[in-house]
Amino acid sequence: MAYAFEIGDELPDPPTLAEVESDIADWKARLADLMTLLTQWAQEIPDVEVELGPHDMRERKMALVGIDTPVQLPSLLIRRVVEVTRTPMPEAYWTPYTQELVKRREAWLSVMPDARWVVGTRGQVLIRAFNRFETVMDLGEVGRPDWRIFRLSDHEFVPFTKTLFQDLVKALK
């Protein structure tokens, strides 16, 4: 039950199915573009593999208009070989092709949609790596996405550039 204590004190208007479906379609498109861009950027770095994966979208606004099955969105898993150790094997085990044991250790970084409906942004994506996470938010307008991250040290919203993203991948260890 809501009491209107003041003018403008009402709770928000309920969303319509058409609005929500159109929002979801637009969100999927923006995410597809973003993932393509990030894949390109990541593949410029050596020893990197990029996997596209699924991600289920389940937000309250969907349930409010009767959408009760999750929508599938794209997500990325970026793996980078960060350490290679070579141990020589005893001669008895040598083959014409292998004389040493090679171990490759990988670190990963994932890019996953966080939420479409956020107060203040047109949607956000979460970049996660071990002990590191960044929220990339679309602060643009309809038809003109503007992906940014919040840099706490100077309280600024900086554009999410190739350099910034590649630095995140290169920092994996």
Binding site: L11, K61, G120, M137, L139
Partner: peptide, 20 residues
């Protein structure tokens, strides 16, 4: 409107991005 939802004991309809 979102502030009022919280004042009435609910959550904002959608998650607020505090810095923005």
């Amino acid at each position: 409107k979102d502030r009022n939802a919280i004042a009435h004991g609910k959550f904002a309809e959608t998650k607020p991005n505090v810095p923005v």
